[in-house]
Design a protein around this nucleic acid. Structure first.
Lengths: 231, 231
DNA sequence: GAATAAAATTGATAAAAATCAACCAAACAG
DNA sequence: CTGTTTGGTTGATTTTTATCAATTTTATTC
């Protein structure tokens, strides 16, 4: 998997001022640059599988990736990751294994950074450590909201939450071009594909959104917010 | 809430060699000792509510605490915390607010440590930072297992998972004395109180466990494991 | 551009779980 | 003790959601 397409490139040239590496100095970024390599994935390809060893900290530099848990018969998508963000495996501080899987939703490139280099920099640069802890904390808070949505809301509320997530956190625009399938939408909302389709249809009939092919536009944000909030 | 019962005591005397503070030196522990104070809570009392400011890192030194999210009409208990462990609020690295609530399940004592002192030590002692990140990572991995159980397993599987959690992680023995109510058991498993009662009854009838008052004993671990694994 | 494969849609049915309402039992206060 | 409160239990019913099967649409490949 790893040696299908590697080429050199420098972290300094990457959009790293808003990334987790924002507090690293040029020499520190060079340490990462020299120890990393870049890999290209086609849409649909699996980047890593849960349970496998995790020798790299993976940073997405282009495209779109889903991280998901393979559960009992179906997947739960924890979230989508876009550039420049990372696919943190909490396993690198525990048992050096992945605890979720990752796959390319769109064609993408990823940088693989040696975990030991990453951990050494965490120890050496408190600003970097703080930034890392901050991002892990943000992720934990997001997970709390997600688990409440998934366990306590009915299907319309869950779909509404996922649409807000996609619109606000991933595509950052409205209307937006969905590049994910109905199955992925269902796996994000913890329901069957058929149920997801039916809820989207309802939303369309109520004038909450339009949906032509991949093109999704939220027409009535207030109403969608209301659907989300009533649970 | 905070000044109902405070008294001095030293972290070095506390069982800190297996706690998050295991890598701190005596002088560092003294810094914490000097900035902290201890509070006593009676069973049922709320320690903090989600949404409130979070100026303290809270460490449980005796008793049993539940951390829970107040969702849409009902609570989801994220887990129980016993001595010596902490009620980490991911908010201290984000917005200085609690993102879940905490309440005493049994009478308990807690140490409140100034967040700024805590964060300063994280910056100054890389071993402490590593230990902290390690524990946060472990928590994240546990949360993944929990969310899969809650969203993809049916009620018997969810109750089985909660019983394993209580037996292995909290009470660390079998049989054990349950000090939680059926409502809390239901809130741990993401179901109604009535459903939790019915599943427990089923388990009893199938000879999986006995249940006299508070005293719960798992009789057939193999069968319970099987129930958990089939989802 | 025809053939094929993959994804989306729809309706009917079955399963899972919540809710409601009533009742019981243990703990507790006066 | 005795009344009261709190938590536990049960059965009946309704709601929610998944599953199954069939069909249509869209994308892909030769």
């Amino acid at each position: 998997m790893v040696n299908k397409n590697t080429f050199a490139s420098n972290c300094v040239d990457c959009n790293c001022k808003s990334s987790i590496f924002k507090h690293l100095s040029h020499p520190e970024l060079d340490i990462i640059s020299n120890s990393k390599f870049q890999v290209v994935y086609k849409a649909g390809e699996i980047i890593f599988k849960q349970g496998t060893p995790s020798p790299y900290f993976v940073c997405i530099t282009s495209g779109l990736v889903k991280i998901y848990i393979e559960g009992y018969g179906k997947n739960l998508i924890l979230g989508l990751v876009k550039p420049v963000d990372y696919i943190f495996g909490p396993g690198i501080y525990v048992d050096n294994r992945h605890h979720y899987s990752a796959a390319a939703v769109e064609d993408c490139t990823a940088c693989l950074i040696d975990v030991n280099v990453f951990k050494r920099l965490i120890r050496e640069n408190p600003d970097f450590a703080d930034e890392f802890i901050k991002r892990v904390s943000l992720q934990a808070i997001f997970n709390f909201e997600q688990v409440i949505s998934l366990t306590q809301k009915q299907m319309p509320g869950r779909i509404a939450d996922v649409l807000f997530y996609l619109s606000e956190k991933i595509y950052c625009q409205n209307p937006f071009e969905l590049s994910i399938t109905r199955q992925d939408l269902a796996d994000l909302s913890g329901m069957s594909k058929e149920s997801a389709i039916r809820i989207l249809k309802e939303f369309k009939e109520e004038g909450v959104l339009t949906l032509h092919g991949n093109h999704l536009e939220i027409l009535n944000i207030k109403q969608l917010r209301h659907i989300s909030e009533k649970g």
